[in-house]
């Protein structure tokens, strides 16, 4: 369970660094870098905070991950959770922040 930050996409705004509850992200040469990948809780706070969808969330191989990566893009109150599957398929689930969980 951890994140990977796309260096090309990262705009160096630092919002992911601010919000990480473990202070695990640092800046190197103007770009965010995941400094302690093994210490990530998997809360996805940074994934949701990133304004350019540069942070990918993945499951470690030890918990069944096989290389799929999830990013978030925002459209007002709608969060688009984009899952890029390792087989090349894409799945997007939209969640409206104004709607409650049904369960």
């Amino acid at each position: 369970m951890s994140i990977q930050i796309n260096r090309q996409k990262c705009v160096g705004c630092g919002q992911c660094m601010e919000v990480c509850p473990g202070t695990l992200i640092e800046k190197e040469q103007g770009k965010a870098v995941m400094r302690y990948p093994r210490d990530c809780w998997g809360c996805a706070s940074c994934v949701k905070e990133c304004p350019v969808g540069a942070i990918g969330f993945f499951l470690g191989a030890d918990i069944g991950g096989n290389g799929s990566v999830m990013t978030v893009t925002k459209d007002g109150q709608i969060l688009h959770w984009n899952i890029h599957k390792s087989n090349g398929r894409e799945v997007t689930i939209d969640v409206d922040r104004r709607s409650s969980n049904k369960y």
Binding site: L59, S68, W81, I83, V91, N101
Partner: peptide, 18 residues
């Protein structure tokens, strides 16, 4: 799937990934 994205997104990822 949606409820888990609001509290434990890894579970939704796992369902979709597998």
């Amino acid at each position: 799937l949606k409820a888990y994205l609001n509290m434990a997104p890894s579970q939704t990822l796992k369902w979709i990934e597998t």
